[in-house]
C-alpha cells in the first residue's frame, strides 16, 4: 500500500481575538494508506476537527507539512486539486444542504467544478445509488429524516468523485436507524476504494475501522489497529474515552470470574464464546 496522506510534524495555532494564539495541534505525524479506513477519536477539544480541516486544506499548517496524494497543502497551486480529492461531511446535514431538491443539491459540487451536464446527471445518479436514495431524487431535502439528509450530504461529496472522504462526527445528531444507515453507506464507500477518515465519539464506530488514531490535547496519543487501541482500556478511560460495548462487557465479566479468552472485540465473538462455555 502507498500513503495517501502524510502528516509530518503538523502544528496548528488558532489566533484568538486578543491576538494571542492557541495551539490546537501540537506536532503530530502519521500516515494514512490509500484505500484504508481510519477512525480518529479523542475528547472534545483534542484537535480532531482541526486536524481534519488541515487534511483538506480548509486550514493550513502553522508549522510542519501535510501531503495529500503527494500534493503539499501549503502550495496555493494545489489547493483546489486537494479539495477535489478530499471531500468532507460534517455533523449537521442541515448546514450542508444548499438546494430545495435532492438531485440539484448533489449536482451543486460538480457544477462548480464545471463538469459537463451529461456527466453531472450520471454522477448524481451513481451517487444516489451509493447512498440508497434513488427514489428521493425529486424530493425536498427538508422533508427527509436526519439519516436521509446526511446520506444526501454524503452523496454530494461522492458526486465530486473524491479519492478520500473525511466524515466529522456524521452520526452525532441521528436516531438509531439513521446512524446505522449512515454507517452502512460509509462502509460501502470504503469497500469501493475510497480512503475513509471517520471522526467519532462512538467507540463501536471506531472499532469498524482498520486503523485508529487517538488524539489528546493536540498530540497523537495512540496509533494502531482497533485491537491494539481498545486493549488499553485504562489509558482510554484516563483520556475521557471508552471502549466498545462488547469489550467493556467482556472485561466486567472477567471481574465476575467468567473466564473468557483475550481479544474479544465484537458481540458475535462474545456470544460465541459464552455459548461455548456453558
Amino acid at each position: 500500500m502507498s500513503a495517501f496522506i502524510e502528516v509530518d510534524d503538523l502544528k496548528f495555532d488558532y489566533i484568538k481575538q486578543d491576538g494571542t494564539s492557541l495551539r490546537a495541534v501540537d506536532g503530530i505525524s502519521f500516515r494514512i494508506e490509500r484505500g484504508s479506513f481510519t477512525a480518529i477519536i479523542g475528547q472534545n477539544g483534542s484537535g480532531k476537527s482541526t486536524l481534519a480541516k488541515n487534511i483538506n486544506a480548509l486550514l493550513l499548517p502553522t508549522e510542519g507539512r501535510i501531503l495529500v496524494d503527494g500534493l503539499d497543502t501549503a502550495d496555493p497551486a494545489s489547493l483546489w486539486e486537494i479539495r477535489r480529492r478530499v471531500a468532507m461531511v460534517f455533523q449537521n446535514p442541515d448546514n450542508q444542504i444548499v438546494s430545495s431538491i435532492v438531485e440539484d443539491d448533489i449536482a451543486f459540487g460538480p457544477e462548480n467544478l464545471g463538469v459537463d451536464p451529461a456527466e453531472i446527471r450520471q454522477r448524481v445518479r451513481f451517487a444516489l445509488k451509493d447512498v440508497e436514495m434513488e427514489e428521493y431524487r425529486r424530493k425536498a431535502p427538508h422533508l427527509l429524516s436526519g439519516g436521509q439528509k446526511q446520506r444526501i450530504a454524503i452523496a454530494g461529496a461522492v458526486a465530486m468523485e473524491p479519492q478520500c472522504i473525511v466524515f466529522d462526527e456524521p452520526t452525532a445528531m441521528l436516531d438509531p436507524r439513521g446512524r446505522s444507515e449512515v454507517l452502512k453507506v460509509i462502509e460501502r464507500l470504503h469497500d469501493k476504494g475510497i480512503t475513509t477518515i471517520l471522526i467519532t465519539h462512538f467507540m463501536e464506530e471506531a472499532a469498524r475501522a482498520d486503523h485508529v488514531i487517538v488524539m489528546n490535547k493536540g498530540r497523537l496519543e495512540m496509533d494502531g489497529t482497533p485491537t491494539e487501541i481498545f486493549s488499553r482500556q485504562d489509558r482510554l478511560k484516563e483520556l475521557s474515552l471508552d471502549v466498545p460495548a462488547p469489550i467493556y462487557l467482556a472485561r466486567i465479566l472477567g471481574e465476575r470470574g467468567v473466564d473468557l479468552p483475550p481479544g474479544i472485540e465484537t458481540t458475535e465473538e462474545l456470544v460465541r464464546c459464552l455459548c461455548q462455555l456453558q
Partner: peptide
C-alpha cells in the same frame, strides 16, 4: 439531547 456530540467522559 443533552449529550449530543460529547466525548464519552463528558
Amino acid at each position: 439531547e443533552p449529550t449530543a456530540g460529547l466525548n464519552p467522559k463528558a
